[in-house]
């Protein structure tokens, strides 16, 4: 849209077009500023050592009549990009360490002596230490790996389960089809806290508590309804005649499904896969219900370790969030166009 209207003289339409474009850019820039503003703060916190979120510096704005245009510009620019972000490099944290002789541990047979020596070698804090600490002092890399493993396998299993069921919904009629479809859609409305205990009990009774496997199983089923809706919609758009032809050639329905329909439906499979992957990647509730061990936690759970009630290390938390945001953004930008076509194709038909 916003095409050149016909019948305008060239110069007039050019200037109008320029105006249009500058308005568009202005609006988009304003939107970007709103989007960036808290995110920039997260970045600036990620370099902090003090572990508080609040910035206590008030911006001393001059009273009415004295404020100049420059003051306004300064105020708003500081809001978007906290100055702290630039100061951080120049003022490396010099933590005041109270050097005191350890008064107690002089006993040479002390079993702790060798252990204490180990952590005595602590590198001095740098301005980027929060980022390096994530990987050297905490299991952050492990958590990301866990998340990847869990999300990939949950998405694979979820898509397989969804594809077969969606095929039955799209191609066959069977008694109770409407009821089953309605039930699947209804599951989307269950309030999340409701499922905590029973899902925990089920997974425990399958002897899969505190394992990757249990979490993968639970996650792959929770995204099932959405995936079925998407895939069913897409399967309906694939002409049935293709499979019928294969059936005439002596193909069983199962091999017709695997050999004919699935290869034709890669876009829809990608949508379902990406949707399951994303929801597993960002899931917190299921993981916190089913996983105990720190080595098994996905990043959503692991990162919460830095947010303790009275022991919050928001610097580390923010650094972790920034690290996570990068792959999440790539995933989101890449998957979004598939998800949208999934919505278009599948529709939501109860």
């Amino acid at each position: 849209m916003l095409l050149l209207p016909r019948g305008f003289s060239m110069s007039k339409s050019l200037s109008k077009r320029f105006l249009q474009l500058s308005v568009i850019h202005l609006l988009l820039t304003a939107a970007c500023i709103t989007a960036i503003f808290p995110v920039a703060r997260v970045v600036s916190i990620s370099f902090r050592n003090t572990d508080t979120v609040a910035t206590s510096d008030a911006f001393n704005f001059p009273p009415r009549g004295e404020a100049t245009f420059g003051d306004y510009v300064e105020f708003f620019s500081q809001a978007v990009i906290p100055y702290e972000l630039f100061e951080v490099k120049e003022t490396p944290d010099t933590t005041v360490t109270v050097v005191e002789e350890d008064p107690i541990l002089v006993d040479p047979d002390d079993p702790f002596a060798s252990l204490d020596e180990l952590d005595a070698v602590d590198a001095p804090r740098k301005w980027y230490s929060n980022y390096t600490d994530l990987f050297t002092k905490h299991l952050f890399a492990q958590w990301i790996y866990n998340s990847l493993v869990i999300s990939f396998s949950a998405a694979f299993i979820g898509v397989f389960l969804a594809a077969t069921a969606a095929y039955a919904f799209a191609r066959f009629s069977f008694p109770g089809k409407k009821l089953a479809g309605g039930f699947l859609f209804t599951t989307q409305m269950i309030p999340a806290p409701m499922m905590i205990i029973p899902v925990y009990l089920v997974v425990k009774s399958l002897n899969l508590g505190n394992t990757y496997a249990g979490l993968v199983l639970a996650m792959s089923v929770t995204t099932l309804p959405f995936s079925i809706m998407v895939l069913k919609g897409y399967f309906e758009t694939v002409p049935k005649s293709l499979e019928d032809a294969a059936r005439v050639d002596g193909c069983s329905p199962i091999s017709a499904f695997f050999r004919i329909l699935l290869p034709l439906s890669t876009p829809a499979l990608a949508i379902a896969f990406l949707f399951s992957f994303t929801s597993a990647w960002t899931d917190f509730l299921l993981a916190s219900t089913l996983i105990d061990d720190v080595e098994l936690r996905p990043w959503t759970l692991g990162i919460m370790e830095f947010s303790g009630n009275f022991d919050a290390r928001w610097g580390l938390f923010a650094a972790g969030s920034v690290v996570i945001a990068i792959p999440s953004m790539m995933l989101f930008l890449y998957s979004a166009k598939y998800v949208v076509s999934g919505l278009t194709l599948g529709g939501v038909k109860g």
């Binding site: 988009l28 939107a31 970007c32 989007a35 960036i36 808290p38 995110v39 997260v42 916190i45 959503t300 990162i303 919460m304 947010s307 928001w314 938390f317 923010a318 972790g320 969030s321 920034v322 996570i324 945001a325 999440s328 953004m329 989101f332 930008l333």
Partner: peptide
């Protein structure tokens, strides 16, 4: 513009 969506909600 997608930044708000990808940054973890807690922070």
């Amino acid at each position: 513009l997608t930044l708000p969506w990808v940054i973890p909600q807690v922070i």
